[in-house]
Computed example of a mutant assay.
Amino acid sequence: MQQITDILAQMGGLQSVARELGVSEDQAASGAEALMPAILGGLKKQAQTQPGGLGGLGDLLGQLGGGGLLDQVLSPQPTDVSAGNDVLGQIFGSKDVSRTVAQNAGAQSGIDPALLKKMLPMLAMLVTGFLAKQGGASAMQPEAEPEAGGLGGLLGGLLGGRTGGAGGSGLGAMLDMNGDGNALDDILRLAGKAMR
């Protein structure tokens, strides 16, 4: 779990979230760690259902705003979270799921779900913007295997998915609450909305 939250902290993402929501950076980091499994789980699900797999996911991230999403949160201006809510609607399949995700993360972390619900779109923008920027960099290298570099390798590594092959590196295992490979499935079951 550390991995992606550390990256976001180094980029100044968590500082931006903390400043905007009027919370400490520690609270922002705790909230990010509580919410990250659901966000990454949603992205993983999208990668599995998109035509073209991770390549299709890269296209989707581009349509949602790409690397510009990251820049919006990092800029000193207040973040327009409507873009983040669009991302959440896309990766969770429904805006209602966001509420359940926040409540679930709040119950596990002891953080106020109302705060988590405000953080969720901003974190979604940071993560998808970051992934889009990483994926975009490797898209410039036609000789690279599409699945091997960029978004595929990055998401595979973060999720411990079939691409990165880094299944044992902690995050993939932590994403999973009941051994079926995706924490989001558990959350969706709690929401009573099993997505296929």
Rank of each mutant, 00 (worst) to 15 (best):
Q50P: 07
T100N: 08
G22P: 03
G161W: 07
L69I: 06
L123M: 10
G129M: 07
G53M: 09
P113C: 02
L159C: 13
M11E: 10
P142A: 15
G164W: 08
L159F: 03
E145C: 15
A139Y: 02
Q3Y: 14
L116S: 02
E145I: 15
G58C: 01
S24Y: 07
V127E: 05
G89V: 04
P78N: 03
K45M: 09
E147R: 11
A132S: 15
K45R: 14
L35F: 04
M177Y: 00
G68V: 09
A38S: 13
L40E: 08
S169R: 03
G41D: 10
G110F: 06
L154K: 02
Q108R: 13
Q15K: 15
A29S: 14
A102Y: 07
A114R: 05
L151M: 13
S75E: 11
A191L: 14
G12E: 12
L190H: 06
S138D: 13
D186R: 07
D112G: 01
M122P: 01
L188W: 08
A18M: 10
S75A: 15
L120I: 05
G157Q: 09
G135M: 08
G165D: 04
D59C: 00
Q2E: 15
R99A: 12
N182M: 04
D80Y: 07
G168W: 03
G55T: 11
M125A: 05
A47R: 03
Q90K: 11
T128L: 03
S16L: 11
A47W: 03
G168K: 03
L184D: 04
A148R: 09
L171V: 06
G179L: 00
A166Y: 10
D26W: 09
